[in-house]
Structures are given as C-alpha cells and as structure tokens.
Design a protein around this nucleic acid. Sequence first.
RNA 1: CGGGAGGUAGUUCAGCUCGGUAGAAUACUUGGUUUGGGACCAAGGGGUCGCAGGUUCGAAUCCUGUCCUCCCGACCA
Length: 492
Amino acid sequence: MSKEITSRSEDYSQWYNDLVLKAGLADYSAVRGCMVIKPYGYALWENMRDVLDKMFKDTGHQNAYFPLFVPKSLFEAEEKNAEGFAKECAVVTHYRLKNDPANPGKLIVDPEAKLEEELVVRPTSEAIIWNTYKKWIQSYRDLPILINQWANVVRWEMRTRLFLRTAEFLWQEGHTAHATKEEAVEETVKMLNVYADFAENWMAMPVVKGVKSANERFAGAEDTYCIEALMQDGKALQAGTSHFLGQNFAKAFDVTFINKENKAESVWATSWGVSTRLIGALVMAHSDDDGLILPPKLAPIQVVLVPIYKGPESKETIDAKANEIVNQLKAKGIKVKYDNDDNSRPGWKFAEYEMKGVPVRVALGLRDIENNVAEVARRDTKEKKSMSMDGLAETIEHLLNEIQENIFSKAMTFRNEHITKAENWEEFQQLLDTKGGFVSAHWDGTSETEDKIKNLTKATIRCIPNDNLMEEGSCILTGNPSSQRVLFARAY
RNA sequence: CGGGAGGUAGUUCAGCUCGGUAGAAUACUUGGUUUGGGACCAAGGGGUCGCAGGUUCGAAUCCUGUCCUCCCGACCA
C-alpha cells in the first residue's frame, strides 16, 4: 500500500485528486478553475493528441486555426447554441489597462477603452467557424469541408475538478460542411467510431456508443452521438461527442451552396470533440491505490530500467548492460528511461514509477547479470519475474501488448458486470444506490419523465445504445409503453 | 451561486481557544557511507503565517473584506 494517496474505498474523489497531483499530471493554479498541466500530464496529452490527429488525417481531415474571440453578434446568431452556453461565457469588454491614479503601482481597467462590441471567449467555435465558412462555400464543388482545430476553450463552470471539468481546457473540435444530410450523418457516425476506436484500442477503455436523448443533446444539434465510459466508482463519464447539426448553423449564418441542379441549398454540418477530460477518464478507468496504471500505447514512459548497484565497482558493469538493454528496446521503438540517478534508492524509484503508472519496470543488478536475467515487473498486476536476458526486448515488447490487452479486458469485464437491467422502479433505485454503473431500463421517451427521474435519483440517460434491441416494455417510472431500453447512470 | 471545511517552510501539518522573538516531520543543499521495496551519519539553508485593511504598545492568533482550494448541493453538450 502506498502511504502517499488516499485509498479508493476511503474517498474516491480524494483518491482521484491525490493521484493527479502526486503522479505529476497537473497542479492547481492561481486562476479559479484553471489548472497547470505538468510535463508528465502534458506528455500523456501529446501522445493522445498525436494518435487522434493521425486518425483525423487518415479520415480526410485537415487542421486549421480560428480565433479565440467571438464577437457577441456572431455568438448569438444560432439561438439554441447561444442560449445553451450564455451563462458560462467569459466576456472581454475592454482592451486596455492603465495606472491607477489613486493607487500607485496598481492597474485599473481603462474606462475609456471599452469595446464597441463585446468579445466572447469561445466556449466552442461553431459561430466563428460558420461565419468563416460562409465566405468559403458557393458551390457543391466547395464541399465537403473537413476541418479540425486543436485549441483551448473556456467555460465558466461553477464547480471544477482537475481534468474532468476545468474552466479552461484543451480539446480538438472538428467542424465539417456537407452538401447532403446523408453525408453529414455519415460523417457524424464515422467520427464517433474514430473516438470509440481510440478509447478502446489506445486508452484500453471500453465505451458504449449511442445517441443522446433530447435533454442531453448539444445546444444547436439535431442529434448528439456519444461514447460513454464507466469509471471504477460506478459513475459514467461522457468521453466524446459527435454532433449532427443539420442545417441549423448554415441557416443562422446564411451559408448556402448552388447544387448540381443550379439551386441554392443550405449546407449540412457536423461538429465533434474530445478534450483533456480524457486524461481524467484514463486515470479513473484503470488506476489503483498505488497510483496510475497507464495503457502502454499511451504511456509517456513504457519501460523504466532501475539499476541495483552494489558498491562503486558494480556501476560500470551494470551501466554497460543497462545501456545495451536500453538500445535494444529503443530499436523496437519502445519508450524507455534508464533511471541511474544515484540520489534515490531502488525502493524509492519502484514506488515512484508505480505512482506514475509506468507499465513495465526492469531491475538490474550484478546478481541478474551473472545469471543472464533481469527482474521484470508489470504495473497492472504487480507481478515480478526473472526473465532471460536473451531476447529480453522481444519479451518486453510482448509484455507491453499483454498489459494493454489485460487492462482493457479488466475494464471491459467491470463495465459488462455493471450494465444491469431494471424491471421496476424499486429495482431501478436500488441498483443506482447500491451497485452503480449503467442501468438498462425502459423509458417512455419524454423529456418530462427523464427530468423526473433525474430529480428523484440524480441519474440521467447516458445514451440510447446504437446497437439497441427493440423490445416492448413499459416505462420504469410512468409505466407508459416503450419500444426499447436506454442506459441510465449517475455521471460526472 | 448556497452550505461546510481549509490556506503557516518545497510538502504534510502543529501553534490560534487565552495576542508577547515562527515550530515538527519530511523534502532540499554540502560531505561521507550506501543501494534487490520509499537508506543512514554529520553540517547547513529555507516562512513579510494566502492577500488587503482594522483593533492593539505588540497580531499567525482578535475583527472586516477579498482571493484560492477541497467536500456536499444547484448548474453543467
């Protein structure tokens, strides 16, 4: 047991906070609700970003960059979107400070520098982007436009949590424009699948793909598709969304194109995004009371090599052998760190790299070298084994794959065990209170019922799964007829 | 934004009730011994007690304001 962090059973929230801070992922800042992402956390984000970026490019998208500020008049153009975000917008009203005549050395906002029109700090970029697309689109030949941007956005949240909900966060937002509804819907689904692929095959985090109910839909969207993940405390977390925006933004920003029949039509739109929230998801999906457990495919350090010195004369021998192993691992493209820092002892390093979630640790001492072996420890199961130095790089390469698969299947098993059917209201409540996870239940399809259930239980409809079976039943709350089950859960 | 808790050395915290020269552990620096699960010895450095006012001869301590964090709630694509 670690003496550094609160255990999950004692206080899950505190465990999460301790972990993020002590593993060196992030730190609090002097700005309310805004965090500092530290090098180790940022390295993790860079790995995630690079993989996603390649996936976006492989599906035909290009990166571009749009301004941080949105003039208020543009922001309010799409009414539902504006209304949805209005109460959490940071707004720039002035462009200059000046010395405070009453208080030397202090600054005040210069009242003479008031902006004619306020600038909204983007909470999302549909407005500024569709205002731009208007200029770019005249003909069907200009479509589709498939653009992604990596950016920061600001949402003035009332209550923030490291990575899971911060006032400023990093994300990517894809914004595409299409000539037909079918093509836009296809794009929306395609990107949802990209997200699910990334979550499952890179983050080792199983997700349910589905569509949101009207209550949970993105402001301004016709349909919001999502991937929903399950955390170890039984709460759900929305890990990514892909929106079919219909022609709402095209109409709000007057973006039309001339089709092959020489007729003007409104453009069809999608937008889709994932954020640094995924780091929070990754932490909560796999880690334990000793620290992070990172999937090898995304870990900033995949293998750490720790020398066990015995007297100064052993250093040369061990360093030489260690460098040999490092080079073999590097030749296989494995990210390896040789930690021969003599200021901390092996035991300290073991605990430290467990905290940081490094998937594989190799300990190397004279004893091992004499026997032509190395001690290999895996983070996920904490299993330690002496392994032959012959073909060690291959052994470790396979082990990394095995760890990736193991943490995925462990998370998958947990997730599957936490999708439970509820047949009546008592059962529904009891499942939420005692077991947690997703509760699969019939719902009459109305927003009113969903609101009532939320007020009574704090559970929301996470999604209507894509591959849902049609099944006659009656609503868990009202008893009204229902044609399919939906997934309820308490969520982050 | 409502309720609760908190902010003192890099970190975790004591001191505050009852005002009187700023403390511990750990971390850090230097030297040495060490190294198979968070080493040991010796010496050394480090805090305008979150910030701003006020009361007082004197404030970490009492009062007011403010900023930040955590927990619960409301809110949240």
